[in-house]
Amino acid sequence: MSIAMPAAPLVRIINVWKRRGQNLVLKGVDLDAGRGQVVCLLGPSGAGKSTLLRCINALEVADRGTVEVDGAIIGCAMKDGKLYRMRESEVSRQRADIGMVFQNFNLFPHMSVMDNITDAPMRVRGESRAVARDRAQDLLGRVGLAHKADSFPRHLSGGQQQRIAIARALAMSPKLMLFDEPTSALDPHLVGEVLDVIKDLAATGMTMIIVTHEVQFAREIADVAAIMANGVIIEAGEAKEVLTQPSHPISRAFLARSLREGH
C-alpha cells in the first residue's frame, strides 16, 4: 500500500462501475480532488452524479473500482489483492470524516436545531455537551442563524434549513464536504444565501465536491469542473476552461441550456 504523499489528491476515484437494477449507472469513472480544491460536477439529470457522490461516502458501494479518501479505500478493504466490502459499523467510522449535504436537507425533524448539530459530535466523537454546544453556536453564527438554536427544522425556510444542514456537517470537522444539488429544492430567492455560505466555506480551504446546476456559481467557486453524461465523465479539467469553452458537444449543449435557463 502506498503512503499518501503531501501532493497526492485527497480524493481519488479510480475506474468506478455501478449497476442499479438493469441500468449501468456508472461506467468507469475516474476523478480526483486535490486538498483544498473545489470540484464541481455538472451534467444532465440521470447522468449518475448523485450515485457517484454517494459512492464517495459509501452510502452506495461501487460494483467495481475504488474510491480513496486520504489514502484509505472507502467502504472496502483490500485483502490478498481482492476488494471486500466492509461491515457497516466500520464504514461509519470513515463517514464521520466526510460531510454530506443533501438536496432535501434531511434535517432531523424531531430534534431542535442545536440537537441536530450536536448529536453526532457527542454520540460519534464522544465530545462533551459543553464543547459540542459551543462549536454548534459558532457554526450557527457562521451560517448567520445564531438565533435559531432552539427552533425546530419545520419552522425554518428551506434556505435556513440548508444552512443548518451545512453547519451540522461541519460540526464533525470533516476533511471533505460533499454537496448534492444543495440549492435545487429551494425557492429562487433563497438560493443566494446558501451559495454564499458555500463560498465562505471554499475560502477557508475546505475540500469540496459539489454537484450543481448553477453554472454561474460553479464558474465563481470551482477549481476543477467535471461534466458527466450517461455514467461517464465526458470532460474534466480547469473550471474556467471547461465551463467557458467546453470541447465536448454534449457539454456545450448542456451549458448553453443551463445558462439560458438563467442559472
Binding site: E88, S92, R95, I98, N106, R168
Partner: peptide, 22 residues
Amino acid sequence: DPGQGEASKALGHRPFQTFRVI
C-alpha cells in the same frame, strides 16, 4: 423518509445509533 437514515449514516452514526436515535 429514507433520507433520514442516509443523513444519519453520513454523519457517522453506526447502524444501531441510526435506528435508535433517528
